[in-house]
Write a protein that binds this DNA or RNA. Structure first.
Length: 420
RNA sequence: GUGGGUGUAGCUCAACGGUUAGAGCACCAGGCUGUGGACCUGGGGGUUGAGGGUUCGAAACCCUUCACCCACCCCA
């Protein structure tokens, strides 16, 4: 029989890695709560049109990376490639915009993009997503960055760089677009094929090209950053000032562009050199026109996403609560009957008591207890039942003692062993 | 979508085109009839990713295909 394997770019996460995922999540939830965020869970599957309208028709994501198919009723549906679109949809559909002036939301879940798998890049990947609706103050832009630095600090991450830029509002973007097309038009023969295409469709992405020749050309070209309108310039400068007052060092990267069309003004990316080619593990920015363009009121927004799969690659050690592990080794049918009553007592006291259901020899049970790193083993056989005792073996010290075979005093008798 | 690399036991890897494809780790059992780790002995495990071809003979060489890794690209 052929075994069915997981799909390309889809993977199983288990063992220590899953612990790291949960740990990162736990730290994020703690700070989200402290900063006043509420969780929102939105569907994995949405109407295809939602993503085309929000992310942009000419982006790579929409053009060639979406898991799109027709459902049984013939409707075109898409596995979400990012989180913001669905959250904006919910923000409007649930009337959240009318219920509160400011909405601070977070969401955690899988995203799907049909890309070629690589280190830190999978077709199913997990994001922790943060969105704030209703505030345009650059103070908030800085607050988001601040919150991420607190999260990263608690996780124990130090070697990362925060890159920031402003991609301007629709006014300065249109103005600059014309300027840039004019600039590159004269020297377009020197650009790579991709960039020739970009020149027509999405000229700002030329600055993101990794081709050395294109880099040289674009290095001496004007930057949008230097041609922002006055309000955008002021917004960005205030943003930087707030970051300085928080003592956060950032790198202003005029080349930083986002691949999704909805971004306006502030954009940022946090990168690590330890990640290889896919070095950005957190990115986001402001999207002041998105809510309106999706048919809602004119409400500004800003958000970011953490690439969980990537961030987890950087997590070295996790701080785990250490609780003792107990193991029940039994001999004979009479002893076996004590397992569930014992376990029940442990569970009530929030303690872990494990056993091996099909165990044979005491030797094999102890070997198993050792392999799962049990701290204490309770041994119960015919002899002990006759004497009315349970043997408690300390696995690290190798010594053992007797306690009475009595469920009601079991936990108090054991607690003396490890609570000191 | 494009390139390069790699696919052999659960894991890490051996095996010049030539017996029945091996080792370490892991697992199970015994040595030790009721006491873990160390040691010794034994055991279970493989369609050599899949399909085709060359050859007296293929894990090895050729073709196709699939997957994984890395990079391009893109992005979190």
């Amino acid at each position: 029989m052929d075994r069915i394997k997981s799909l390309r770019g889809f993977r199983d996460i288990y063992g220590d890695e899953v612990k790291k995922f949960r740990y990162v999540e736990e730290v994020c939830r703690k700070y989200f709560n402290l900063f006043g965020y509420k969780e929102i869970i939105t569907p994995v599957l949405e109407n295809t049109g939602l993503f085309i309208r929000s992310i942009g028709e000419t982006t790579d994501i929409v053009e060639k990376e979406m898991f799109t198919f027709k459902d049984l009723s013939g409707e075109s549906v898409t596995m979400r490639p990012e989180a913001t679109a669905g959250i904006v949809r919910a923000y409007l559909e649930q009337g959240i915009f009318a219920k509160e002036r400011i909405s601070k939301l977070f969401s955690i879940g899988p995203m799907f993009r049909h890309e070629r798998p690589q280190k830190g890049r999978y077709r199913e990947f997990r994001q922790i997503d943060v969105e704030v609706f209703g505030i345009n103050d650059p103070m908030l832009d800085a607050e988001l960055i601040w919150m991420t630095t607190l999260i990263l600090k608690e996780i124990g991450l130090e070697n990362y760089t925060i890159e920031v830029n402003s991609v301007g509002c629709s006014d300065c973007r249109e103005h600059f677009r014309q300027m840039i097309v004019g600039y590159f038009e004269g020297i377009k023969d020197d650009l790579c094929e991709d960039c020739k295409r970009r020149l027509q469709r999405n000229p700002l992405r030329i600055f993101d090209c990794k081709n050395t020749k294109c880099k040289e050309i674009s290095a001496s070209s004007p930057f949008l950053f230097d041609h922002l309108c006055e309000p955008c310039k002021t917004h960005f400068n205030d943003f930087i000032r707030h970051l300085e007052s928080l003592g956060i060092k950032v790198n202003i990267n005029k080349r930083l562009v986002r691949g999704l069309d909805y971004y306006t003004g502030t954009v940022f990316e946090i990168v690590s050199q330890e990640l290889g080619s896919q070095n950005a593990f957190l990115a986001g920015g402001r999207y002041n026109n998105l809510v309106e363009s999706m048919g809602g009121p004119k409400v500004p927004g800003i958000g970011f996403a953490i690439g969980l799969d990537r961030l987890v690659l950087l997590v070295k050690e996790i701080k785990e609560k250490i609780t003792p592990v107990f193991f029940f080794a039994y001999l004979g049918e009479r002893a076996k009957k004590f397992i569930f009553p014992f376990m029940e007592e442990f569970i009530i006291n929030n303690l872990k008591l494990l056993y091996l259901p099909e165990a044979k020899s005491l030797k094999s049970q102890l070997r198993y207890a050792d392999s799962i790193r049990a701290d204490y083993v309770l041994i119960l056989g015919e002899d002990e039942i006759e004497k009315g005792i349970v043997i408690v073996r300390n696995m690290s010290k190798g010594n053992q003692l007797d306690i009475p075979l009595d469920v009601s005093t079991l936990i108090p008798n054991l607690q003396g062993l490890f609570e000191k």
